[in-house]
Design a protein around this nucleic acid. Structure first.
Lengths: 178, 178
DNA sequence: CTAGAATTTCAGTAAATACTGAAACTTCAG
DNA sequence: CTGAAGTTTCAGTATTTACTGAAATTCTAG
């Protein structure tokens, strides 16, 4: 596990960004390391490469598994656990998207739903605002579901439209009939 | 500033979710409070309502301004600063989306670009992966730009398609000519 | 200018979070 | 079984992040 300067820099960067992405430094580093490394790695190798404790790596791997971002592998005649990034970058992106929806959107959505249901007609302004927030989150959530269900290939093509999204939308107006 | 139980619960919830959304508890609470309150509030009132120190509120307001989520207001003949949520929920959602792009995507994108430019042809596997990550982030970034540039109205209609996104994409295939 | 009302800053402290390393646990070959 | 190789757990500690409150600063009416 001798990392090139660039790889080193990339892994460290992901560590620093870790917190913005919702996990901690070590988790970010482990994930980056597994993504840019072709061969599956043992916890031991990871700890060595990142200069962190074996226990810390164990916890990090557990968390990455809860995000469904890494996979356990075994080699015949070797009882060590090997880990590797799960699937393509696209798969991983999709997974992160979904997991973030679950963690960042769903809890709030569920609180809003219950408050709106129990609403007593008082407090017009705040209720209306809660409703708006609810509607927005609900829509984002639906989108997120839809995107998560797509094949990476389809998603990729859709994404390639990039700035053209709005153009498509314009088209749609002209095509209600289809 | 007497909050109803529900409002109280909502504000506290946003505080707890705060960290997942990239800021701290107090910032989450202040933002929630301003969103559900129609009248602009002073820092004093906010501190009272949330039972936190005046200084903490000042820092929180500063951060929310850096996110462009709140606006300063003044009342004639009153030199206190009043704060209010900036624009509709939709505007705010868009703003959060953009700011998160800047903070969560752009730094990585910029590192990747420089590493890919300086690439020396060695390390085939990791380079390819970096390229894939770059492409994915680039596309998300473009989308994010496109969405950020849309009128809330347009965006709203687009979002309402929800699960129908893929249908649009199917349409597009049939419409290359347009 | 000046004074007082308001806001911001920031050193010190509190709270939350992450990390280590050793002990407990698991697994399996012999 | 036994014990060695491997993994997980977790109490204690270190680090980071958030918060307080008092002092410094800004602002403006008079």
């Amino acid at each position: 596990m001798q990392l090139s300067d660039d790889s080193q820099a990339f892994v460290m960067h992901c560590g620093e960004m870790g917190s913005r992405w919702g996990f901690n430094r070590t988790v970010g580093q482990i994930c980056a390391l597994l993504v840019i490394t072709e061969e599956p790695l043992t916890a031991e190798q990871i700890a060595k490469a990142l200069s962190v404790s074996r226990g810390n790596v164990s916890m990090g791997l557990k968390e990455l598994q809860s995000w469904r971002l890494i996979q356990l592998r075994h080699k015949p005649g070797d009882r060590k656990d090997y880990y590797t990034a799960s699937g393509s970058i696209w798969d991983m992106g999709q997974t992160i998207f979904e997991e973030r929806r679950k963690r960042e959107l769903d809890p709030t959505l569920s609180l809003l739903r219950s408050q709106l249901l129990a609403a007593d007609g008082e407090k017009k302004y705040s209720l209306q605002r809660l409703q708006e927030i609810h509607d927005l989150l609900e829509l984002i959530s639906q989108w997120s579901h839809a995107l998560g269900g797509m094949q990476p290939k389809t998603l990729q093509s859709l994404m390639k439209l990039g700035g053209g999204v709005s153009k498509i939308f314009d088209l749609k107006g002209k095509l209600k009939s289809v």
